[in-house]
């Protein structure tokens, strides 16, 4: 087996090929993309007006321009990070099609992550750029003042996508035990709305509650963290700490997803003849 010996660089190419397939796959869903974009923009306006009314000139560490930027960036991140996106794993477990994933020589978590990053790449081009552009035209957004914020934000958004992937993978892998993932999905939908900073920045909450969310759950790291990075809510050092925290969560979620996958496979009963 000559192709066995080639190690990491080839793995890397496998990953890139899968990412690119994910990108192309999502680029074929034109209608869904446009409908989603429209919704994100619509809610962007509503959230802007609500939060501006609440914040006034300054509140909870944000001034008015920061909060408007926060809104439009987070509207753009919803689809990019994939807060509500499905991986399709749960359905494939339910129908038994998951065998096709298991019969490949790459771990499913690796393949699904690659596909999801491809999806995120496409979403970034349309579903992120779109709302931010509309926000910039309609309002006076606050652009980063430190040049380093730009690359740091990209890293932060990628890490947020990985954390979100881990959460969704776990949610859907529940189908290995429950046969479908409806229950866990409802819980995830609730948390991904309320606890990520999407409805309002988490600093609006009492300090203790916010602290619990940041330390004990992955949710604030999905949206609040990258949004805070881009509006430069913290010092440069603070932003770095934030991104490092995301990296930690990303690693943890991937490890847990991989573990759940292994356990799930062992008790998998492939459905259908």
């Amino acid at each position: 087996m000559a192709n066995h010996s080639a190690g990491a660089p080839v793995r890397y190419r496998t990953f890139i090929a899968l990412v690119s397939a994910g990108f192309r796959r999502y680029s074929t869903y034109r209608q869904a993309t446009l409908a989603g974009l429209f919704t994100n923009v619509l809610f962007g306006f509503m959230r802007t007006y609500v939060l501006l009314a609440v914040v006034g000139r300054q509140a909870a560490g944000y001034d008015a321009r920061q909060i408007v930027t926060y809104v439009w960036v987070s509207q753009g991140l919803i689809a990019t990070v994939g807060l509500w996106g499905e991986l399709g794993l749960a359905d494939r477990i339910r129908t038994g099609d998951v065998v096709a994933d298991l019969l490949r020589p790459v771990p499913p978590v690796f393949a699904y992550l690659a596909a999801d990053l491809g999806r995120a790449g496409f979403a970034a081009l349309v579903r992120f750029v779109g709302p931010v552009l509309v926000g910039a035209l309609a309002f006076d957004l606050r652009w980063p003042q430190r040049p380093a914020t730009y690359p740091l934000f990209v890293v932060s958004a990628v890490l947020a996508t990985v954390i979100s992937f881990g959460c969704r993978y776990l949610t859907e892998a529940a189908a290995y035990w429950l046969l479908d993932a409806r229950g866990p999905r409802i819980v995830w939908a609730l948390c991904s709305n309320a606890l990520t900073g999407l409805v309002f920045p988490l600093s609006f909450l009492p300090g203790r509650v916010a602290a619990v969310l940041w330390t004990a759950t992955p949710f604030p790291w999905l949206l609040q963290a990258p949004a805070d990075v881009v509006v430069e809510r913290h010092s440069a050092g603070g932003a770095l700490v934030l991104v490092a925290g995301q990296a930690g969560w990303a690693g943890l979620m991937l490890a847990v997803a991989g573990y759940a996958q292994r356990l799930g496979t062992r008790r998998l009963v492939v459905q259908g003849g």
């Binding site: 192709n3 397939a21 192309r24 393949a111």
Partner: peptide
């Protein structure tokens, strides 16, 4: 959702042929 050819191409990478 992808053309048949893309599937074959992906499999090449997955199996590292």
């Amino acid at each position: 959702d992808l053309p048949l050819r893309d599937s074959f191409d992906l499999l090449r990478h997955i199996y590292r042929v």
